[in-house]
Amino acid sequence: MNMKNKMILAITLFTVVNLFGISSYPVWFLYPSKYPNTITGYSYGGYSPTVDAERTYCVYNECVANGTLYTFQDSDKKNSEYFYYFSPKELKRIKGKLHSLSSFMTNVISSEYVKLFSTNKNINVDSRYIDLKNSTIPKWIKKRPFWQDKQFYYGVGEYQSKGSENDAWKTAEEQAIFEIMTNLAINFYSVNILDVTEKSERYEKATATKVKYKFKNIQIQKRWIDLNKQYYYVLIRIKKNNVISPYLN
């Protein structure tokens, strides 16, 4: 087989593997706790991983989570009116200061990739990959969604992907923080809605979950994916004295 054909075969194989999703992930991605002074950025919807990493850096450093999640009992619909607010000054400070240490692609077709960043460009990163094809469910997932020890609160976020892998990882990360909030303390309301018109009468129950938390130093510990069911899991921990909320008293 000549060189040209070998190249075509290699590219085809590479593309086919990526079309059907990846099954191997870098050690730094699955075990971020081993690299505490780093941040992961995802490319999504045209934004570069650098933009995502800068914003996530600010949120995980210090943020205030505030707002309400509405869920409607009769359907799977929800209306998320809660956000993680971070300082614009902090964003300005960190812009352009993150160095790319490593990256990998999650989707060739849509050019989605994930990058590891740090303010310290001299960190040595393990370049090994771990194949999750035949891996068993880690113990930390069985403890989901929340637990605590003397020092930390732990939250496990999970999300079933319906398209973008980067979106799934990002959502699972956010859900892990949300689990910490909702399992600790929230303000909860239940509302019954009776909608009467000339033609019909509709009864529905809606719930409102209010959150108000200040977080410092959110730490991502581990990630894992159930390749068969396309379930994405992320473990996050936050030191107890870095969690402040008026709802905790």
């Binding site: 995802y42 999504y44 919807g45 934004y47 995502d52 914003r55 996530t56 600010c58 949120v59 943020c63 205030v64 505030n66 998320s80 956000f83 993680y84 607010y85 971070f86 300082s87 614009p88 964003l91 979106d167 990002k170 959502t171 956010e174 200040k214």
Partner: peptide, 14 residues
């Protein structure tokens, strides 16, 4: 995705 994280003056008030 980016709607969930907000860089905003609301941060200072909160």
């Amino acid at each position: 995705l980016y709607e969930r994280f907000r860089s905003s003056q609301a941060y200072d008030e909160l």
